[in-house]
Amino acid sequence: MRIEQHPILGPLNNETVTFTFNGDVYEGRKGESIAAALLANEIRTLRYTAQKNEPRGIYCGIGHCYECRVMIGTKRSVRACITEVVEGMKIQSQGG
């Protein structure tokens, strides 16, 4: 999913960071959002809803809809679309 080469934008920055999502270890690129890092690892489903247990992922991309909310450590409802992934980050799906 990563666009390593781009006809206009050139090659991609390849500085990496390591993070975990629901306990599994993944690699992201420095400076990218949590949502981008997970999508690059083919992860689209970030959580399941409280009432109907439906899968949800990033939708609006500007921090408005909160669909992409995740837990970072013990902090709830962090928006994956506008929060940068950093080295050692522990990301978890949150119920609801």
Binding site: Y59, C60, H64, C65, Y66, R69
Partner: peptide, 8 residues
């Protein structure tokens, strides 16, 4: 009435 407060 949810977390996005009707923004969507």
């Amino acid at each position: 009435m949810g977390i996005c407060q009707g923004r969507t």
